[in-house]
């Protein structure tokens, strides 16, 4: 008995060992990239945030000074700059996230109803997502030019005054949000379409038999069926909006004044531009922003995937 037992064990042990290792082999390649391009820079960035460093000389340790300057040292210029950049980012998120969820959702529902030309519309709405942000912003700058743009030309033919789309609040925000919506609705639309395809038809049939009208079907079948994709889209869109940079950078340069200088743009300016770059301060702001994003995503996921 004892002999057979010991004779059986090694192969069992071997299989376990192999089974455990195989997944690692699949994860391995990605893990290496993850470690080199994400984990290492993140940890290094965290370390930099406790130092003063201009990329040239040695880093000098300053403890929490960088954090103090943006979080509680209210006399600091960087406190003022950081929170004005935070305000700008927050305005953009608040204005852009709802339309970036709702518009693609309704387009997806419309296309999912299989109207004639549905493939054409699907391609049409997705097409701008293929353009680079530079192209998108340049097109919109031309369209929205205060004195020579197409949009103000049509507004002029209606007998209305020219609108300063890219120089004054609130128009700058509207312009930035509109160009972002035009550029990115395609991606969310595709995600919603995939989600809608997963909802079984028999649920709608059952709802119909129970006498539910279209609106009731939307709230009681479509929305619950989209819970997974919706949570994903809401979180990803919020994160993407917090990370906005290129649109204000190219269209308004962060202006007028500091109005549209969003966080990522300010972090970039701080850490990488000018004769005296402040890598430590930039890193500290990135860490704070990262923490904020992490908390927001966690809260959103908790709220949206909560079982009722």
């Amino acid at each position: 008995m004892a002999i057979t037992k010991t004779g059986d064990q090694p192969p069992v042990y071997k299989r376990n060992w192999k089974e455990k290792l195989t997944p690692l082999l699949f994860i391995g390649p990605h893990l290496i990239f993850f470690l080199i391009f994400l984990a290492y820079p993140t940890i290094y960035g965290f370390i930099i945030s406790f130092h003063n460093w201009n990329f040239f000389g040695d880093m000098s340790f300053v403890g929490l000074q960088n954090y103090a300057n943006i979080l509680w040292n209210t006399d600091s210029l960087f406190f003022e700059y950081f929170w004005s950049a935070f305000r700008a980012t927050f305005i953009f998120v608040i204005l852009s996230v709802p339309p970036l969820i709702l518009i693609p959702l309704f387009i997806a529902i419309a296309i999912n109803a299989r109207p004639p030309g549905q493939n054409f519309f699907r391609a049409l709405f997705y097409a701008p997502s293929l353009l680079s942000v530079v192209t998108v912003v340049l097109i919109w700058i031309w369209l929205l030019d205060t004195n020579a743009g197409l949009v103000n030309y049509y507004i002029g033919t209606l007998g209305l005054d020219a609108i300063p789309w890219l120089t004054r609040t609130p128009w700058v925000w509207i312009s930035l949000v509109v160009m972002t919506i035009w550029w990115t609705i395609g991606t969310n639309m595709i995600l919603f379409l995939a989600g809608l395809g997963e909802i079984p038809d028999h649920l709608y049939e059952a709802a119909k038999i129970d006498g539910a009208n279209k609106i009731q079907q939307f709230f009681h079948v479509t929305l619950p069926g989209l819970k997974g994709p919706l949570a994903f889209v809401v979180v990803m869109t919020t994160l993407a909006s917090f990370n906005v940079m290129a649109q204000p950078q190219l269209a308004t340069g962060g202006g007028p004044g500091y109005e549209t200088r969003v966080l990522i743009l300010y972090i970039y300016d701080t850490a990488f531009t000018g004769g005296n770059p402040r890598a430590g301060l930039g890193a500290a702001m990135s860490v704070v922003l990262g923490m904020i994003l992490l908390s927001i995503s966690l809260i959103q996921f908790k709220l949206m995937t909560r079982e009722k």
Binding site: I141, W142, L144, D145, T146, N147, A148, A162, P164, W165, L166, T167, R168, L250, A251, T252, G253
Partner: peptide, 18 residues
């Protein structure tokens, strides 16, 4: 001068002869 000349707007106007 017009007001609210945005990024590169002044270049456009001059190129157009406006």
């Amino acid at each position: 001068s017009p007001s609210d000349v945005q990024a590169d707007g002044e270049v456009t106007l001059f190129r157009q002869g406006n």
